[in-house]
Design a protein around this nucleic acid. Structure first.
Lengths: 216, 216
DNA sequence: CCCAAAATGTGAGCCTGACTCATGTTAGTT
DNA sequence: AACTAACATGAGTCAGGCTCACATTTTGGG
């Protein structure tokens, strides 16, 4: 009877085709609006209107506004990981700079082409202080990236690598946001700096794990 | 006499003692509430109530909620820079790891003791996509840190250093947020990783500027 | 084909919170 | 005291998040 009021979650997965399409339309409208008016000025009413769906329908899928944003972030995350996985498989880089190059370039490409990606990428802003540290979007990304990394460069996939990837991800996120804050197309110099940070750190870090190609 | 409705700004600086105290009380109440209920659930009514001030008074000082948060961020920023400047002067470190140590430790100390610091540190969340990239809080921090860094380690204070410091700051911000997301007291391992990232990158970066103490 | 059940869709309206403004009060100055 | 500028107030306006009682569509037997 009473609806699921757990904040920031989905309420009902669409099962029929019609509602599945509406679900995607809502995410698309949300993404467009985020680009147009920004995070703070986003309204659920306008998202619904833009998706040509009633406000009630929106709330059948998402528990609240945060759930809507979260679902968009999840879709972005899946798309990003898919793109990275495809390119890694195709190009099969053998060292860390190779993997860094692919991951950064795909992120940049998505920032330039995917609506709303710049505002929410893999997680809404201000979702830090959740009391349950169980699930954290960036941690999820790190987990998936870690297995991709480990399998491709011969590095041992252990707790140390987990930390290195999480740390690298936070850095990349911050520097790339800066790059796009400075220049809507992404400041090339700062994008290069992002790769540099990751390579400096990971090289340093992985070597100390005794698994790099050039042991000290 | 329409009021200043420029978003995110101050409206009137307090000039008399009474209002100056109220101004600080409002920031204190805001900081406390941010810790208690989080950014999303913050209400201006409750901030005013907590500060024992009418809602009207709050809006005499701040153009809107964002202005309130911004003023708190500015106060945090000034306190941080003051603390770092004092410690740098006292300890006078001669190399990059020395400066990194001081800056990171002071940030950690403030996260542990200053109410609300964990939520807004130097800038509210979600303030990226402002159309005028003129002023950006992290850039301001970077500018001030840069002069401190340059004067103390004999590095040339030029555009390259500017970039290095801005990049380093974004990384530190991200990794330290992660450290405190994982552990309310700040995960020691991640704090150590933060220093490591900064040292790896800055060492790499500064050496290439031909100014480190150990030229290659 | 027909129908009940399940899934889905609707939007007027409730509620809460950001922000205003007409009016009253206090501090500083002469 | 008397005047002015700074300061303080909170009931009221407005907008946006979200609900719920009800309507419509799809599905899967029979």
């Amino acid at each position: 009877m009473n609806q699921d009021r757990t904040p920031g979650t989905l309420r009902r997965q669409p099962v029929q085709k019609r509602s599945a399409e509406r679900f995607q339309r809502l995410l698309d409208a949300c993404a467009e609006l985020l680009d147009e008016v920004g995070y703070a000025a986003l309204t659920t009413k306008e998202v619904a209107r833009r998706a040509e769906v009633s406000i009630g329908t929106l709330y059948q899928f998402f528990s609240d506004q945060e759930g809507l944003i979260g679902a968009l972030a999840t879709r972005n995350l899946e798309a990003f990981l898919e793109r990275v996985a495809v390119r890694l498989e195709r190009e099969n880089p053998q060292d860390i700079p190779g993997v860094v190059e692919v991951a950064v370039e795909e992120y940049v490409a998505m920032r330039r082409t995917v609506p709303g990606f710049g505002v929410v990428d893999f997680g809404a802003v201000g979702r830090d202080h959740t009391l349950d540290p169980a699930l954290d979007n960036n941690t999820a990304v790190a987990g998936r990236l870690r297995s991709l990394t480990a399998s491709l460069s011969g590095v041992r996939d252990d707790a140390e690598l987990e930390i290195a990837v999480r740390v690298a991800l936070e850095c990349a996120d911050g520097v790339l946001r800066l790059a796009f804050r400075t220049d809507p197309q992404g400041d090339p110099q700062l994008i290069a700096e992002c790769k540099r940070v990751l390579n400096s750190y990971l090289n340093d870090r992985i070597r100390s794990l005794g698994a790099g190609r050039e042991a000290h």
